[in-house]
């Protein structure tokens, strides 16, 4: 029997993996991928709650749709910034882009 906790633990694991990628990958595209993983873990949560807590309503699923939309927009803008970084600094590594300091 698969319970809600199973899904939540899976989601938490996926989220942590996403954070690890966000904190460690040097490649900007890799960072964006990690973020997509985190979005997915959030979506798993939403849909799991939708199924187990509010099966009559579709609130969780609708939220997941919005999250996917936002994720798409984020990926679009993020990748545009990566292209820009590549063009202007000739770099896609986020630790190279460290101008925001003294």
């Amino acid at each position: 029997m698969v319970t809600l906790e199973h899904y939540l633990i899976l989601s938490a694991l996926l989220f942590c993996v996403g954070i690890f990628g966000l904190l460690t990958r040097r490649n900007a595209v890799g960072v964006l991928m990690s973020i997509e993983l985190m979005f997915n873990s959030a979506n798993i949560n939403f849909i799991a709650f939708s199924k187990f807590i509010t099966p009559e309503a579709l609130t969780g699923q609708i939220f997941a749709i919005f999250v996917i939309t936002i994720a798409a927009a984020e990926a679009t803008v993020g990748l545009a910034i990566v292209v820009l970084m590549y063009r202007n600094f000739n770099a896609v590594n986020v630790d190279k882009i460290n101008f925001m300091k003294w």
Partner: peptide, 13 residues
Amino acid sequence: RKIQTGAVQNYAF
């Protein structure tokens, strides 16, 4: 000021 690295991943950390 060394804390202020400018690397976003440090900040995220």
